[in-house]
Design a binder for these strands. Sequence first.
DNA 1: CAGCTTACAGTCATTGTGACCTGAACGCGA
DNA 2: TCGCGTTCAGGTCACAATGACTGTAAGCTG
Lengths: 238, 238
Amino acid sequence: MPRPDEAGAQARLAVSTVIFALSPDAGAAAPSLRIPLVRRLREPGAGRWALPGGWLPVDEGLDEAAGRTLNETTGLAPTYLEQLYTFGAPDRSPDERVVSVVYWALVHSDEVERAVSDENVCWFDEDDLPELAFDHLEILEYALWRLRTKLQYSRIAHALLGEVFTMAELRGVHEAVLRTRLDPANFRRTMEASGTLVDTGQRLAGTPHRPPALYRFDTASARRGDPIHHITRTRNAS
Amino acid sequence: MPRPDEAGAQARLAVSTVIFALSPDAGAAAPSLRIPLVRRLREPGAGRWALPGGWLPVDEGLDEAAGRTLNETTGLAPTYLEQLYTFGAPDRSPDERVVSVVYWALVHSDEVERAVSDENVCWFDEDDLPELAFDHLEILEYALWRLRTKLQYSRIAHALLGEVFTMAELRGVHEAVLRTRLDPANFRRTMEASGTLVDTGQRLAGTPHRPPALYRFDTASARRGDPIHHITRTRNAS
DNA sequence: CAGCTTACAGTCATTGTGACCTGAACGCGA
DNA sequence: TCGCGTTCAGGTCACAATGACTGTAAGCTG
């Protein structure tokens, strides 16, 4: 790292997070992706919706700042948090130069109901987004692309579900994210071959049909691939 | 983007780049990956080797700053430049808080000879690295992982070669990066099926054996995949 | 021209995957 | 109680992709 040449004007560092969850109405219809946004109260961009975030304190790490600001503004505790990209075009904010380190997060569907529900914090459906502030729409679309891409080679769908889940629920996550129908038999075969699922032995009772098996994600087998470690928190209170 | 809560201490923003090229001794032995590093002249970390980079000016974009600092310190003009990751642990620099937006770049092998050759700018072999300053070793290893991973699903090997190349040269790039032997016939079949190569019709004369065909990369077919656009410059003078 | 090396083309077996089928297990209504 | 419908769960079949291998063509050297 070089030495500061001058003590003059400098870009400000912000941290923002794109949060994904599934719509809780998992009853009959297919679930859809939802994203919480916060309404901006101050200029620039007052009134518009924006990604939750905040300025980076001098003594806080990037991952910690992303998790904290996300929790402070939405009350959510993510199960998956990963750095997405750093956006720093000189004109992305009208007044001053702002560089945003953007993260993306996945939260359990049952966590959504415990989230802050405010007139300034609102959940939007993936294809029913409002007008966003700054370049946040571009950021959100990039995060969506990354989620869809990573779902196909990594095993992150469990981060959108609860502790245990049925094969049909897991398939529903893939179908909702990828926006396509998947063959139940082939999906089962692929997931069982991946070795990341553990059959709990339990079965979900009360269904009008044959009770499905309940699975758990094998945390031991998930530690390969990306060398940058991702935060996979157990839920903590805000 | 929120409003500054205080005008107090703030992290400084730096931009660094991990540059990859192949060793020019493409005569007989297999080429190897080489990385240019610069010697730090000032504290902290004076005397150690570090990634080329510099502070981010207020009015310059991230991509532009990465390309400029890379060119100023090494004299290189990269053919491929992509953002890698942003490193911002609070203790990664001893004195002040520094957040580094790190890029990775590929340069043509013939570009290496035009590069600055200084006692403060030196090329190191991939497995003969010196002691690096700060967390730059961790950064470099992550960039290496990304290069190896991306080479297998994207077509970026041409960025390490010249304008035209033989199939054996292209295979040599893959073998050098992936550190493994590849079957010539299967490699040819895979590359021809990818549709990214164009036969120039010319053949490389002067070889002691059957003259190989010269290929060119099909720039039109390379525009798919990652929605974040990468800089693919034509070479420009420093 | 013999002999060598590399370029390039083709074959065969294995594997992964999409499409489809069949039986099993449950609740529900007649 | 007994079909009956629905979903779970395990299987087969066909095709594409790929690794291992063999064969032929085209240049140079002695």
